[in-house]
Design a protein around this nucleic acid. Structure first.
Lengths: 343, 343
DNA sequence: GAAAACACTGTAACCGCTTACAAATAATTT
DNA sequence: AAATTATTTGTAAGCGGTTACAGTGTTTTC
């Protein structure tokens, strides 16, 4: 069933059918209705490929993320996909993994598929060295590129992110003010946003003359989900004699590792050890006491990202970078929050 | 840059260029190389829409899931997307939510976009009433439809699922054999696989003459992630005087709710209450003691699903239904596993 | 009532690729 | 060497839409 069939049955030309299909105003109400009737009756839907060829777009956005099974990224993808579809776009998903090579190849694939825009979900897509960000700039030469939780100043690249520096700075200060001074920053990444977080931690510590040595920032290198390994990492440090009464983790899962470590080491939370996670995910309710965490307003970020993208696609001038502030939420794993548990 | 440009520069016809592009064997090695050189030199990539129009496919598979941020579904999507791309396909993702209406509309969207196949991730896509499954059959009239964790006998519909009945049956029996006889089945869904699970539970209980009343199966209706609400649900039962020493949950998150309930009620696990979750997700390591759970071999399922789909798309005869068995993994929340914790 | 403006509709070119078929060339056979 | 066959290449007709432009019929203007 093609546009020709419809035009024939409706007794009009294909141009008229096409006009009806595309909501052109230059069709009389009468013929419009006639055509619409035939279309409905035949359950005709225009061929998407032909349409794509004619219009040079299929209203599709490419979404890239390292690992869609990551709790946080999965949530972001959910918000983004929903809002995209609500705007008449749909999304090609690519889980790239963490290697630059595969990111590049996914990027090319999306460009080849002629998506209308590309969303990079997660801060791990932006590198330190300019040369490594080349692939983003190349893509941006073709279609707008949106960064969630990362920033890159470049033409046709738009960044939506939370103020990770300030969030962690604040969390650290609050921990210090509650009397905890030997704090460990526990992370598994050195991505764009991770660096910001670390800087926030470091600045806060230094402002209180507490940043003594590099060992206060601990990198965990194992699997993203292996809570045991995370706990072991900390246990080793502990056994070597390193002491700390507070841990700020770069995500909730790592924080969960910290909680487990405390359990294994016989430390009680929050008396002997305070823990603050990041992302305020489902996991915060999964431990006892419940976990304090930093909420970076993911839904707001995603909402704004789509808004910006739609603006750009609509030819509007849009802000190149938008920053939202996060919020430290205290629950049972910090002293400040052991009393009043905010939602 | 089109195929005409290439043909001109290479001094051949567009047909030849097209042949080279599509790896046709009827091209001499010499001209092939000549064309390839020009293509590389010009960094030419064929227009995907035109190609789609010509070949009537864009090598794209539609993935539908209710909520990509669900721990289990997210993981499935990850596996599926990766394996699809490895096979030269990419995927349009649609998060449908749980209403039939939106499932239908997503399905239509995918058909309209002319995907080569559709994967329904999660058992909630299959309904009891045949009429409500109409939308699946309609889609299957166009393209193969793959069901993950659900089954439907229909032309061009392929089901890949785990043997949820047996898994839960076994888990229940093991609980009973360990001395726990008053067991609650805790679920939030009545999807295809949920029913199987319930039947497994019921059968096991009945086989031991323990299935006294309907109250042994408890439906939780709230948010999928609200662990507090889940715990509250159980607490209300408990306060009403209902007593149980075992809980089998239809997913790990609900099991986590059970763990929290135990905490709130002052019950110790596993002495006073045994808990078994489902999915063997990240969450099992997030509580103390670690959670016993049923592993349904998600990666194997996904692997097989893609294998089957590729077979079907390649015109091969493929099994209409493939069932894998799961495994009960005992950890700290069951008596059987309090001693020997298997990985 | 003729000219001008307007609203609607149709014709045909084009989007960029695939592929059936015809044509030309090369390799075998007799 | 002619005839036959196999290999390679080119021509042109789609694939199913969009849309510039031209054409027709109506209404408005003076």
């Amino acid at each position: 069933m093609t546009i020709y069939d419809i035009s024939e049955r409706a007794g009009v030309s294909i141009a008229t059918v096409s006009r009806v299909l595309n909501g052109s105003s230059n069709v009389s109400e009468k013929t419009k209705q006639k055509v619409l009737d035939v279309i409905n009756q035949c359950e005709y839907t225009p061929n998407a490929f032909a349409r794509g060829l004619g219009l040079n777009t299929m209203k599709t956005i490419g979404i890239m993320c390292a690992d869609s099974s990551d709790l946080y990224l999965a949530k972001a993808i959910y918000y983004i996909e929903q809002k995209l579809r609500a705007n008449g776009y749909d999304s090609i998903l690519c889980c790239t993994g963490y290697s630059l090579e595969s990111k590049k190849s996914c990027m090319n694939l999306l460009i080849t598929k002629k998506v209308d825009g590309i969303i990079l979900v997660g801060s791990n897509f932006v590198y330190d060295k300019d040369a490594e960000n080349r692939y983003i700039l190349d893509a941006a030469a073709q279609v707008p590129v949106m960064l969630l939780n990362a920033a890159l100043e470049a033409p046709n690249v738009y960044s939506i992110l939370s103020d990770d520096f300030s969030s962690v700075y604040e969390a650290t200060m609050q921990l210090i003010l509650s009397g905890v001074e030997d704090i460990l920053y526990f992370t598994n990444s050195s991505s764009y946003s991770s660096k910001k977080k670390m800087a926030g931690f470091r600045n806060a510590m230094e402002s209180q003359k507490l940043f003594s040595s590099g060992s206060l920032i601990q990198f965990y290198q194992g699997s993203h989900e292996d809570i045991h390994a995370m706990a072991d990492h900390l246990m080793k440090l502990y056994q070597k004699g390193l002491r700390f009464h507070g841990i700020i983790a770069s995500d909730d899962c790592l924080a969960m590792g910290a909680v487990r470590f405390a359990l294994n080491a016989g430390l009680s939370i929050p008396e002997d050890l305070c823990v603050i996670g990041y992302n305020n995910s489902l996991l915060v309710y999964c431990c006892e006491p419940e976990m304090s965490s930093i909420d970076n307003k993911l839904e707001t970020l995603c909402q704004n990202l789509i808004l910006t993208l739609m603006g750009v696609l609509g030819g509007k001038e849009m802000p190149k970078q938008t920053v939202f502030s996060g919020e430290v939420i205290h629950r049972g794993t910090t002293l400040a929050g052991s009393g009043d548990c905010q939602k």
